[in-house]
Write a protein that binds this DNA or RNA. Structure first.
Length: 487
RNA sequence: GGCGGCAUGGCCAAGUGGUAAGGCAGAGGAUUGCAAAUCCUUUACCCCCAGUUCGAAUCUGGGUGCCGCCUCCA
């Protein structure tokens, strides 16, 4: 069995075969750093993080490179607005990106690249394109002559004659007049007054958007990589243009597989900065009753990465609840393992084969995370049941070995999806120290409540229970008038 | 106008030829003084029409609706 990937290039699922056995070179189109990231970005990078984690778990040696676009009109506009510099704005939002992603448990790339650090490679590439007749200078700009590249449109499946230039209403009129063809795009833009600029054979200026990715991939990973990924909205023109640039120069395919994630929608339409219908990651997480970052991962994992994903209050609420169940399961070992006599560091325990097999079958099929998450829930619900038995009856009804295996399997597989529990012991200690109430005091209150119950003074007994609840202590009445509690 | 995608229970969402995973919510029951938690049970003519097939949510054709892209985009 091998991994199957939906390749945008062929519009079908293909068996994954890396160029060199067990080596995977991945390049992910990163963000333009002019603002905080929103949920659309969160989805995208959580998805690619998961692909990377899964391939790694499957035994591939993955090299993951991602860029930051730190030269761009939007950054400049932002810098003017904030009376700052392009560099400062880019720095600020690059840092913010890294913070947000760390919270979402997105692993750092093996290498991050920056447009500003790739100027030489960019200039080299443009020069080669010029020599090979694919690029032409015009009034200090340099443009790519799209009609010279035979395969233009092969990724997005479109023909130049079918497209309406300027359909989206965003064409820059100035450029339109300079370009030989409306579909030609800028490789190099001449600098206007008080704009950051780099020296070049075509005069001072800065690179166009698409060229940086071509240059970075070539510099860091080589002429052909295994997987190139990004948002579905990058398919055209960005990735199409990358292909045109890279392949015209190298004569080799830029990437064997192209993967695109579906958009995050708000009330049926795409979340985007220009529409203003976005929620930033930090706003969502930092809201008073905001979700745990892992709940966001759950939210993303519960739909297939190529499908649109609707962001709604109720979807987040459902993900929060779902995460709570999973989190309980993940904490089972910390909570009960010691009492059950587990050795927690025992790692040579075999995982539960059926669950692993089902998980892998789902994930192998173009990263079917909803199927994989269902496996996680199967394990978590069983642990939840056992946990309830322990609390109410004092012991589980499964043998300890099986329980430990369940738990280890859950932790391991959830980890492959980047779903990790908070360290419960830590938070428990936290609440011990910050929460003034001691065990003895709780016992006293529980005792008082039992007496109140016996005399049928339920108002009093409920008051005590509510008070304790407010302090994070849950009471459980068991048959026979016994009450147990836990924080 | 062109290209692509999607339509599955109250909401979300897997399933791509053998008669519907999972999550959230709901209902009934067990338990409880009432709760909480948990357990058990339970809710689907798979957008419409036609076709292929012994058999289709799944394939084919035709509708209808929604979404994305056509040089800001994750």
């Amino acid at each position: 069995m091998s991994v199957v990937i939906y390749n945008t290039l062929s519009r079908q699922k293909e068996t994954f075969e890396p160029l060199s056995p067990n080596q995977v070179k991945m390049y992910c189109c990163g963000v333009t750093v002019y603002d905080y990231c929103h949920l659309g970005h969160a989805r995208s990078y959580i998805v690619w993080d998961t692909v990377r984690r899964y391939l790694t778990w499957r035994g591939y040696n993955v090299r993951y490179v991602q860029n930051f676009t730190d030269i761009d009109d939007k950054i400049l506009t932002r810098a003017r607005k904030e009376k700052s510099s392009m560099e400062a704005v880019a720095k600020k939002y690059t840092a913010a990106y890294l913070e947000d992603m760390a919270r979402l448990n997105v692993l750092e790339a093996d290498e991050y690249t920056y447009a500003t650090h790739t100027i030489d490679g960019i200039k080299r590439l443009i020069h080669e394109l010029e020599q090979k007749g694919y690029a032409y200078p015009a009034e200090g700009d340099v443009y790519y002559s799209v009609r010279k590249f035979e395969g233009y449109g092969k990724l997005s499946g479109r023909k130049l004659e079918d497209m309406r230039a300027g359909e989206s209403g965003r064409t820059e009129t100035q450029q339109t007049q300079i370009k030989q063809d409306p579909f030609d795009f800028a490789l190099w833009k001449s600098a206007k007054l008080d704009e950051p600029a780099w020296e070049s054979p075509w005069g001072p200026g800065r690179p166009g958007w698409h060229i940086e990715c071509s240059a970075m991939v070539r510099d860091r990973l080589g002429d052909t990589i295994d997987i190139h990924m990004g948002g579905a909205d990058l398919q055209f023109p960005h990735h199409e243009n990358e292909i045109a640039q890279s392949e015209a120069v190298t004569g080799a395919p830029l990437s064997t597989y192209w993967m695109h994630n579906g958009m995050v929608n708000v009330e049926g339409t795409k979340m985007s900065k220009s529409l203003g219908n976005f929620t930033t990651i930090r706003n969502l997480l930092d809201a008073p009753d905001g979700p745990n970052p892992m709940a966001i991962r759950m939210f993303v994992m519960q739909s297939q990465y190529r499908m649109p994903l609707d962001f709604t209050e109720s979807a987040i609420a459902a993900a929060k609840k779902g995460w709570a169940t999973l989190n309980d399961g993940l904490n089972f070992g910390q909570q009960y393992g010691k009492n059950l006599g587990w050795k927690l560091n025992e790692t040579d325990l075999e995982l539960e084969a059926a669950a692993v097999q089902q998980f892998q079958a789902s994930m192998d099929d173009d990263f079917n995370t909803p199927g994989a998450v269902a496996v996680l829930f199967g394990l978590a619900k069983e642990l939840q049941r056992q946990s309830n038995l322990i609390v109410h009856q004092g012991s589980p009804d499964a043998d300890l070995w099986t329980l430990q295996q369940h738990w280890r399997t859950l932790v391991q597989l959830a980890g492959v999806l980047g779903l990790e529990a908070q360290n419960q012991e830590e938070s428990a200690t936290d609440s011990d120290s910050t929460n003034g109430i001691s065990d003895a005091e709780i016992e006293k209150l529980v005792e008082a409540r039992s007496l109140a119950k016996q005399s049928k003074n339920y108002a009093e007994s409920d008051r005590i229970r509510d008070d304790l609840k407010a302090q994070g202590i849950t009471l459980i009445d068991k048959p026979g008038g016994v009450t147990v509690w836990h924080r």
